[in-house]
Design a protein around this nucleic acid. Sequence first.
DNA 1: GCCCAGGGGTAGT
DNA 2: ACTACCCATGGG
Length: 298
Amino acid sequence: MYEIELKLNVPFNLDITLDCGQTFRWEKNNGYWKGIVRNTVLFVTQNGNTLKVRSSSKTLLGRNLINGIKHYFSLDHDLVTITNHLSGKLKFFNEYSRSVSLDAFKESSGLRILRQDPFEMVIQYMISTRNSIPNIKRISDNLSAFFPENRLMINDETFYTFPTLKQLKGLSINDLRSLKLAFRSTWLHELTEKIESEDFFIKLKELSLKEKLDTLMQYKGIGFKVASCVALFGYGELNAFPVDIWVKRIMEKLYNITGSTKKIMEFGMQSFSPYAGYYQEMLFRYIRTRKGIINICK
DNA sequence: GCCCAGGGGTAGT
DNA sequence: ACTACCCATGGG
């Protein structure tokens, strides 16, 4: 085990960042967050402006551990500029939308969009379709545990790294059904059949946000919402604006906008450019922490 | 038994 | 372009 302590000189909230719905494979146990990032098992805890990290590997994301952690948690994102910019955009809207949004910003203080693996995002958000968060976590874990060679034993505790494209290519539709992917089984099977190698996900980096969405949406099971989540959480496309049932509800309340997710997504991207993704994630957390009760004032 | 979950495909206008 | 309906499974 490798251990580091990182003094934070920027706003950051570990709990909010890992519990706002952008990631499915982190878990908190007696004060420590446990997670698997690529092939590394991490234990992380925050005390004020100190981040304590224990790691199964001395490198992370091709960097030394400290820089890998900084990169994964996007400590380079300028949250002050981002929230100031979003607050400026809110001036075009009414008092109600503005005050609710500013509340959401306050409650999500220190939230950072993670730099996660694009392939993992594709699979997890394809699984997320018409599913519940506990179930998405469970299926995602079971999918990883399907491969014994992915097992890592750390302090008598078992962890499984997320499957690679090559590994998932080896699964039949029936395998996927037995892992409870249900109607998503054929989608995932077809995807892993059509995408030849991981190069696909590397090449996607060079494309614009619109091109990324268009390319991803050529595959069955990937629509506007899933593609946007991949862009935002896997490629750092901070203007992607995923619209799920919760965001749809709160956008309807705040901006009186109804209709297709595409329409709401485009409204969000245009109105809150270039940081619509941060706005979306803070709204998502805001409404989820209220369990969907959004008859806030009047 | 009912309804809902970080939606998307398809068929019909 | 928009709508209605279906999709498997788990939990309340």
